[in-house]
C-alpha cells in the first residue's frame, strides 16, 4: 500500500503523462462531467479523471481475486459512479457482502440460540 503522499505524487505524474500521451483525449475531450456542478467540485478535473482510472484498475484486480469471471469485470465496473469507485478503492476487502454466510460453533451457537428464542436475532429461520 502506497503512502498517501507517494500516491498523490504518482497520480500527478500519471496525470501529466496521460495527458501528454493523449489518453484523456476522447471524443468528448475536455468536457466537464455533470458531477462537478452537483458536488460543487472545484478540483482539477484531469487529476480527478486519473484518480478514477487508478481506482478502476485497483477494483478490477480485486474483483478478479474475489472470483469474478474476467469477461464480466468490465460490465460490473461500468455501472459504478466515480464517487463509488473512489470510495471502494483499496477497500473492497472490508465491504460487507450480503449473502447469509455464517460460520459458528459450540458456545457461540448456544448463545445465538438463546438470543433467537427471546427475539433479538432472526438468524436461524429458513431464509
Amino acid at each position: 500500500m502506497m503512502s498517501f503522499r507517494a500516491r498523490g505524487f504518482v497520480v500527478r505524474l500519471m496525470s501529466v503523462a496521460l495527458i501528454c500521451m493523449g489518453f484523456v483525449q476522447t471524443s468528448s475531450a475536455g468536457m466537464i462531467s455533470t458531477g462537478y456542478l452537483i458536488d460543487n467540485e472545484t478540483r482539477d478535473a484531469s487529476l480527478a479523471r486519473v484518480e478514477v482510472l487508478l481506482a478502476r484498475q485497483d477494483i478490477e484486480r480485486q474483483l478478479l481475486a474475489f472470483g469474478v469471471d474476467a469477461d464480466m469485470v468490465a460490465e460490473r465496473l461500468r455501472g459504478m459512479s466515480n464517487t463509488e469507485l473512489l470510495a471502494l478503492e483499496g477497500r473492497l476487502d472490508e465491504q460487507l457482502a450480503g449473502g447469509d454466510a455464517l460460520a459458528v460453533i459450540g458456545t457461540v451457537f448456544l448463545v445465538l440460540l438463546i438470543l433467537e428464542l427471546v427475539g433479538v436475532t432472526d438468524i436461524f429461520k429458513s431464509i
Binding site: 474483483l63 474475489f66 469474478v68 460487507l96 457482502a97 450480503g98 449473502g99 454466510a101
Partner: peptide, 10 residues
C-alpha cells in the same frame, strides 16, 4: 462475489 459468498451494496 464467489469468494465473499455474497454481494456488495455498491
Amino acid at each position: 462475489l464467489p469468494e465473499k459468498s455474497g454481494s456488495l451494496q455498491v
